[in-house]
Design a protein around this nucleic acid. Structure first.
Lengths: 358, 358
DNA sequence: CTTTAGCACTCCTTTTCCTTGAGTGCTAAC
DNA sequence: GTTAGCACTCAAGGAAAAGGAGTGCTAAAG
């Protein structure tokens, strides 16, 4: 059943008042706003309560939105404002500022978002499980040591110094390199291990040891890259929010954000923005918090995620606007040429368009 | 003036009771412990107050140690117990567990300590400002791209993919490599920049651009390594402590630990363990917290720091014991051979002995 | 001179009770 | 359907009282 236009207006007003006062909203307040009497509003309140959109902390208190109320608000009632010029400027500012400081914005995406929206935030770098080694390279250092360089299929290059018990002349090194490049490129972690077994017979034990060290190193790089990594920041911001004046509640959420961050929602579908309100969160511990999470495009078909965590009484309008803007900015950044003084991404992807909202 | 033996005993008892109850200690409690009457204790209390070792929240409340009281306790009274067998085992456990998971224990030292002592902790990786590039290596990839490999004087190797506007044949690459190795090795960041200017005339602008890219990359690596990096963890633990039941106080300390972590004490002298009690901290914001900080030896003459932050009513005995043990374990680990499957440190230093305490 | 028992006093904490006021639900009139 | 009116509810706040842990001081005992 569709709500009457007036009920919707009332619900919207209640939600918005509650969002910025954190106190139950009375009929008088709304009456003034809609230009009808408080008695009328009370009647409407009663019905909205029955329908499950509002709740009453106790008789003779004002009304508070229920999760269902928030949901309707977010879906239909909320004004989808874009970020204001100043907001955009300040976000761009943050983004630019950090871009120079620290190589990867990615690792700090959560931190940036947290300062932008003033709620705790998290970021997820969705690992690339399909990564393989594209090429091995070995550089002599001294009689027994060499540098192994590993270039992965996403054009990242890592290297380590490796010292061995064997004497390594140029010929041997070149043999080893050929072995590596013929057997261990273009393979996933599991297949590499398998191959390692199968070549073991053709080699002297010493040689095999060296080989396996290098392969293990490469495998570790792939592992590292495929690991989904969740980082949370700004958890302490909740202490300024009335719902967390209670230290125990605050502590509960904070330890969750630190210790169980892997349990934060990571939507699989490609929706650019997702909002989870209170009990909509699968995880019990998040039953009275809301999460807004956006995805952005890193290029190479990979995506990153940034999310915001807060009480159900979250300022959805501001958060969605700013978070969307942030995610779109990131996508654009990765679409065009990225970092100055760095050359990681080779072929700029065509920037995918992110539509603004849910 | 030296305190009488009995006064010391009393002070010790008061400190210890207060540490684990967080409530002012009355004369009766102590009387029972020392086998004298409460009146006697009260007389002693009064004197200890005058001398500045104890304080009274208000008339007719028990006594609480003053910072000066804690200081005496820490210096003379506290039992310097070593960690118990179980404690040692559990610390070793944590250390071993993490060692496999994540390459560097260093970056996680703070986190480990925090779980070990159950207070917020921080770790400082004291940057190596004297680091230089030992060797450059360039590997061809395709017509215009190559991999630049940088080996630093501490035998770490990093590399990146570099694409250029120029066509790079083997000869050119080798020229560039020689240029790099003759002019830019063994130099600090500043000198590298200077050199860059001086060689600019001998080169075509295109070539110079490529060269400078590589040098910049190397310089960034040195910068990164020289940066002092402070990380804090476990801040939320304070929420369980009675002194931080007040959300505002908690918030204040927590934001300090996150935003102003660089202001945490970083003792310069080589003391293996340092304790800073309340106002002994230079920073105002730490005036009613205590900090215990230990240093450990990374090898190559470099040292790392781990610290613990808590209320002045900190369990100094346990914290110092565990922290010392932890730091010594780290030192030992770096002294002997380090990580499995990794070969970063080449020449094992002779392990320096860390004496246990202040 | 030190220790201790005794006692009046202080002041924080807890509890109780009351008041206040915002907000409600219901009814009856418009 | 809307509104004014009214009795009712209930959390929040404050004053007053009770309770109690702990003190300081005095005077007597060791």
């Amino acid at each position: 059943m569709e709500l009457s236009e007036r009920k919707k207006q009332i619900l919207k007003a209640v939600v918005e008042h509650y969002i910025d006062s954190a106190e139950p909203v009375g009929s008088k307040t709304i009456a003034k706003e809609l230009g009808v009497s408080s008695a009328t509003i009370r009647n409407e309140f009663a019905e909205l309560c029955e329908l499950g959109y509002l709740e009453q902390p106790h008789t003779s208190a004002g009304r508070v939105p229920s999760p269902q109320g928030y949901r309707l608000y977010v879906n239909e009632l909320m004004e989808r404002r874009a970020v204001s010029a100043q907001e955009a400027e300040s976000i761009d500012e943050t983004l630019r500022g950090r871009l120079e400081d620290m190589g990867g914005v990615l690792t700090n995406a959560g931190q940036l978002v947290s300062t932008i929206v003033n709620y705790p935030a998290y970021s997820v770098t969705s690992g690339n499980a399909a990564l393989t080694v594209e090429r091995f390279e070995l550089l002599p250092v001294d009689a027994t040591g060499f540098i192994s360089v590993v270039m992965t299929s996403d054009k990242n290059v890592k290297s380590q110094l490796q010292s061995t018990a064997l004497a390594f002349d140029a010929a041997r090194l070149s043999d080893l390199k050929n072995l590596l490049n013929t057997h261990f490129t273009g393979k996933g972690r599991a297949e590499m291990s398998a191959r390692l077994m199968s070549v073991s017979e053709q080699l002297s034990p010493e040689m095999f040891l060296v080989l396996s060290r290098t392969v293990e190193y490469a495998a570790d790089i792939l592992d590292e890259a495929s690991r989904r990594d969740v980082e949370t920041t700004g958890a302490s911001r909740i202490l300024k929010m009335p719902e967390y004046r209670d230290v125990d509640k605050a502590h509960e959420l904070m330890t969750f954000l630190v210790d169980d961050k892997e349990k934060l929602p990571v939507p699989e579908d490609g929706a650019p923005l997702q909002i989870l309100i209170g009990p909509e969160n699968v995880n019990e511990a998040l039953h009275d918090t809301s999460v807004v999470v956006a995805s952005y495009d890193i290029g190479d078909g990979m995506r990153g995620l940034v999310g915001v965590v807060g009480p159900t009484r979250m300022d959805y309008a501001t958060v969605t606007a700013r978070l969307s803007y942030f995610a779109e900015s990131l996508t654009k950044m990765f679409g065009k040429g990225l970092p100055p003084a760095e050359t990681k991404k080779t072929d700029p992807q065509k920037p995918k368009e992110l539509s603004s909202h849910v």
